[in-house]
Design a protein around this nucleic acid. Structure first.
Lengths: 235, 235
DNA sequence: TCAAAAGTGTTCTTTGTACACCCATGA
DNA sequence: TCATGGGTGTACAAAGAACACTTTTGA
């Protein structure tokens, strides 16, 4: 049955903006495009939507194909529909943001995509409108992380306060007073201190913390305030 | 040239969630669907994307067809892509939120769509996943209005503080202390008081205010704080 | 003159911010 | 013992929240 005659049908793709943090640097995972047009240029990982998939499932599949990871933070960013964004044929793309702990990522054996992690402020030019997608994704993450505790998604189960602080500093491109950051995080009561210490980056060692999962869930929608003057920083 | 062979091409629609405020009540503009399937049921205003339009332009066109209005607040909400959301044929829909001043709206002569304004908490059942779109749009507006001055988009050029307060109260379904709200709005310095008064709703009359457009632009991305405990209210 | 809506201030509490020193340890 | 990074506290400023009375004026 086709009641919607005379309408144009177009391709629909999903592209993933994959942020990762290794405890030191905030990075983005890009692939070398394997087919024409723009073969061998850097690109977001994407794919056409499958016949029986919804958008979120397509994003999960694409992320899994590239990273081997499931059940990571994954959120729709926006749909991009400029008619000529793909020069071959009109393609609407729905962009998704993913936040992953780089240590969990293992390059897939036999990987056809030639993925590479790039420092977020040393990105190469990307194909089509992928640069714009990345800009808008960075902005959205900055926006959201100023109010909600999403950056914990980039950290391992156990992490130290200095790691957390470096992460915030990278996301906002600024230095943050650690006493004030710690006080804000403590007052949110989201973290549980473990007895164990990480001695890999100092002699004294830094205590490991973990998320209190229940409080994390409960406070996710609260308006917290981790960052001073966020309005000036999300630009 | 068709390099993307073997991929399914699908229909792409844009649906508009149109919020309006008349100085008293917050409302949503719905139409009676004019064709099968689900003919004569209530629905968001939507349409398929045209051959040479981007998504925003399609939303503008659809809004204009229904309301005769251009240059109103219009923002992409989200793409909806569940395979069977339209029972006839797979259709991806990109939802847009619009905020308009109902007084500017004039029913189009010869209107084929039979539009009606519904009170926001007395909505009828809508077709497909439109109920979900509306819920998510309400949530997004609540979220955003707690931090950014978007609700002014729903007001006329000249408006009174009591109108503004009623609007906030409707959006959040709560009563708001007018002294505190006024202080917050004053400290944002967004409003300019006019000499004129609106005497239509009281004997004393309420001063009209207008937006300071420059400061509005400049502060749009700032994190303001119009609402107490927004985390509890955006539900 | 009175009913109905508009407008206005104060106090207290909480949160934000700026700032500098001691601690623990392995090399 | 000393260099390195980790950890802690205080004082002042700003913002948020709770709270009730006076003003205006047309009917």
């Amino acid at each position: 049955m086709r009641l919607y005659t005379d309408q144009t049908r177009i391709l629909v793709a999903v592209d993933c903006i994959i942020f990762g943090y290794d405890g030191e640097n905030l990075k983005l995972l890009l692939i070398k495009r394997g087919f024409e047009p723009r073969k061998d240029e850097w690109s977001l990982m994407g794919g056409f939507i499958g016949g029986n998939e919804n958008l979120y499932e397509a994003a999960e599949r694409i992320l899994y194909q590239l990273t081997g990871l499931k059940e990571v933070y994954l959120e729709q960013l926006k749909a991009y529909g400029t008619p000529d964004r793909d020069p071959i044929e009109r393609t609407l793309s729905v962009a998704y943001c993913a936040l992953i702990d780089i240590n969990k990522y293992k390059m897939q054996i036999n990987d056809q995509y030639h993925p590479e992690w790039f420092l977020l402020n040393e990105l190469p030019r990307l194909i089509f409108d992928h640069d714009k997608m990345v800009d808008e994704a960075k902005r959205k993450i900055r926006y959201k992380a100023a109010i909600h505790p999403i950056l914990f998604e980039l950290l391992p189960k156990k992490f130290t306060i200095p790691q957390l602080q470096k992460l915030y500093e990278q996301v906002y491109g600024t230095t943050i007073d650690n006493r004030n950051l710690i006080r804000k995080i403590n007052s949110s009561k989201l973290l549980i201190r473990l007895d164990e210490k990480d001695k890999s980056s100092s002699k004294k060692g830094a205590f490991y913390f973990k998320l209190d999962e229940d409080k994390y869930e409960a406070n996710f929608q609260a308006f917290l305030n981790f960052i001073p003057n966020p309005g000036n920083l999300i630009g």
